[in-house]
Nucleic acid binder design. Sequence first.
DNA 1: GAGCACTGC
Length: 645
Amino acid sequence: MAPSFTLRRVTDDLAQFSENQIIVMVGETGSGKTTQIPQFVAYSDLPHTRGKLVACTQPRRVAAMSVAKRVADEMDVQLGRHVGYSIRFEDMTEPGTTFLKYMTDGMLLREAMNDPDLQRYSTIILDEAHERTLATDILMGLLKSLAKRRKDLKIIVMSATLDALKFQKYFGLASESPAPLFKVPGRTHPVEVFYTQEPEPDYVEAAIRTVLMIHRAEDPGDILLFLTGEEEIEDACRKIKLEADDLVNQDPDSVGPLVCIPLYSSLPPQQQQRIFDPPPSARAADGPPGRKVVVSTNIAETSLTIDGIVYVVDPGFSKQKVYNPRIRVESLLVSPISKASAQQRAGRAGRTRPGKCFRLYTEKDFMSELEEQTHPEILRSNLSNTVLELVKLGIKDLVRFDYVDAPAPETLMRALELLNYLAALDDEGSLTPLGAIMAEFPLDPQLAKMLIVSPEFKCSNEMLTITSMMSDKHDKNWTWTHYLSQRALMQADNVRAQLQRTMEKFDVELVSLSDERKLFVNIRQALVCGFFMQVAHKEGEKGNYLTVKDNQVVALHPSCGLDSQPEWVLFNEFVLTTRPYIRTVSDVKAEWLIEFAANYFDLASFPDGETKRALQRVVNKRAGKAAGRGDDSGADGRDKKKRKK
DNA sequence: GAGCACTGC
């Protein structure tokens, strides 16, 4: 709960809130801004007297849910009535009663697709804007232009201090003066920061050494070590455990017991809970106290807060998504973190009392090598989904849309190209009726397309299941070791129900074939309709494949489980690990490519090479057959039928 | 014969 001087200060600020349409608000962790500001706004706005409500967005579901619960408690109202939340799969609001709604940023973006003026809201608060999620970035662009159309709409952007000026300038509107800034004081403890004298050649080894040094020499208090991924974390935990046990055995009178707890998102929730266990107790009543070490990915930087952390060890790296539009591939790269991120990590040491942060890089490198901010997600992602959403939102010129940070033109071009081939956009870039339906599905465009056309192949029932499994099985680790996971299957079932509702809404029939052999053929044909741009052709006998048109050498991922090497494969994912792999592949026939994706596989515009020659052979063979039986229907017949849709 | 930052609809 924030101290009262904070509240008084906020009340003063809110007197000015009524005079400004858009304001930027900064408040460090512990300022209570997420719980306090929306309450004050709701009381100042009285949105329900006008049949409206105040929305406050969060990047994550758990946050939207838990903050709503806390605020409902504080206001002594029942959750889901006056105060509620709205996240995917769960709408805890009561129309007409709820006047303060916490929701995920993605959820508000979805709502905007069907109500671009967001008429239901009197004030929209974008919280954690500094995290720069894709949805928050798009919302900022939409709200900036919406503010001009709806003078009655108030907008509050809440962020960390470092980013405030950027948002102030962005939302400065026509007045040329930046949006006003309000500060909410925080309540964290000082954290002393240490740097290494020299760069560390092996950050994992240096991190382990530092943890053990803290354990031997520093006062009681738990340690948080940031590493980049599961394997690294499990490995470090083993090594720390071994070395700590050695230390205890050598010197039981001065070194206390130590437990090492791994933390990453793919751990089952029960194991994640272990981070809240108390540290081990001393072996003897007067012996040295025990200590807890949490070894975590970035999940502990934003999503999870662990109380009792006094020491942070920060090697300065994290895995970050990067998108290469040239080869159309998203991959994860271990990269140096930003200054903002380093600051956030250090702050994790000062939540309960003054702490220390050990940075395993030099102060000079911190000052001169680290970027100020982590690049926003919009600059690091494949944007095909986002572009479809924007077009559906009525944005005509994607290149000139007022982004906070504009994505690379090539990334936009890639997205437009894909959507055009999928017939979601016409040649002018306008939304087609098919594209309008695709945008309604919470799916990648390829999956949405294949699901929508699947009734033509009499396999929509099966495609619905396949799509659900492919779009929500986050829990790859669990599935890997146990083959099946109750949790993952329940999630997929949830998604399936949601997608089925959307199908019903747009009259996409739910059908199956009883002939199993025919069914398996048709399923793969429907796959082709969505994923024809992700096809590879076998080259030679060494298991190499070349991706169609890009001509990248790839191999079938060992997990894909095919017992043969088909000439043509369609793939769901291109991953760049020890080498380029394609993962989740299906055996397809060249005839289907030519038949169901005639535009993309038009040989006249196809780059020369072995792939084109292989396709040419198939075309010639078909032409020969067709001439033989005097029949030239087939591909065109199917194609015309689909265009009518 | 390889592997899995984190989210969201």
